[in-house]
Write a protein that binds this DNA or RNA. Sequence first.
DNA 1: AACTAATTTAAACAAATGTTTAATTTAATT
DNA 2: AATTAAATTAAACATTTGTTTAAATTAGTT
Lengths: 209, 209
Amino acid sequence: MNYNDKQLQILNSAEKLFSCKGYDGASVRDIAEEAGVNIAMISYYFGSKEKLMQAIFESRTSQLTEKIEGLLKNEGLTPLQKLEIVVDDYVDRIISKERFYKLMICEQMMEKNTVVTELLNALKKKNTELLGKLLKDGEQKKAFKPGIDPVMLFNTMIGTVLQTFINKDHYKIQNHLEQLGEEEFKKLLLEKLTKHIKELFKAILQYED
Amino acid sequence: MNYNDKQLQILNSAEKLFSCKGYDGASVRDIAEEAGVNIAMISYYFGSKEKLMQAIFESRTSQLTEKIEGLLKNEGLTPLQKLEIVVDDYVDRIISKERFYKLMICEQMMEKNTVVTELLNALKKKNTELLGKLLKDGEQKKAFKPGIDPVMLFNTMIGTVLQTFINKDHYKIQNHLEQLGEEEFKKLLLEKLTKHIKELFKAILQYED
DNA sequence: AACTAATTTAAACAAATGTTTAATTTAATT
DNA sequence: AATTAAATTAAACATTTGTTTAAATTAGTT
């Protein structure tokens, strides 16, 4: 789908308000004001509030698995290297698209919008499939222990990152980082998180030697 | 706070509807109907919808850290044994109080209710403090590696469990467990999760030997 | 039985909700 | 310049929202 500037502005404002006030907590008037457009423009362009939500998810999740798919085909990398790139990619993605991932959690919990739910289910299936392949490949090459559940591994990665982000103020205080600006803090979190998750993965996936 | 039967019924119904429809998505009429009481009873007993939300959090979080505090004082256990009990306790708690923990995630993300936010912040602080002490103790006894961040460890535990629960339908399908009943499935998840998290913790906390 | 306090009710309140309308302005095409 | 299509607007629409009211009922006390 190709959106014009005004449509993109509405999508961004809606994503922002949905993520910090919730779907029902953010009114179309709120969204219109934030986007600087008339209320009627939302129905005009997207049909309804519900379809606006769907449009957010469709636009934000398109070409999401492509990067991982390309990575898996790369023959020059070891399974562990590939896995580390997957971690880098996911942590970075969640951090840079924080709002959308917050929205995603809510939608996964509530399951109010059928279209969104089905879109996310397809995405989860695809992701599990790709990670499963990577694990199987590593297993065959004696790089990973056998019998690792890709879903569990995925949940640890995503869960850790999201939980850290949901509690990032608490993390900031606990680690005495109050003086850091938002961008610096995000950078630090990204480094800490990728390191932590890679350690976790290596520890349970690799053979001790 | 001591609540009578009718108040408890309202609290339960509100928790249920808030967790599956969101705070703004669940109307006081919905809640009253679910609880089988007149709409006005909510204002009568709790003052307002907002204060009803606060009452849920206050009633569900009281005496939450006591168990962990008692555990830490127990001199007969090794730091690793204590940590494993903490994991058992948290996984079980989240699984048996799924609704409330869903609510908690939402509230942590939105931060709309100041009273709830402050209550949760105090809880996080206390939890980090307790886990930090346990890690320090294990460090001194040469059971754990030094320099582990308690917040990061906590986020991995809570994040993994919550993420698994948010995606439990997907987990069910991926592991071909569709025939299992809800209770059986929960039991299986509990076992899988505690095992997985304990493995993670041991792998990054203990010295290789 | 009489009285008081607590509970429960249906109805009403204003405010806010998502969506639509019909008129107007802007842009594009002929 | 005239015509058509697209974009934008303020106002109105019917519902739904959280809360309050004032009357009715129930329970507890004297």
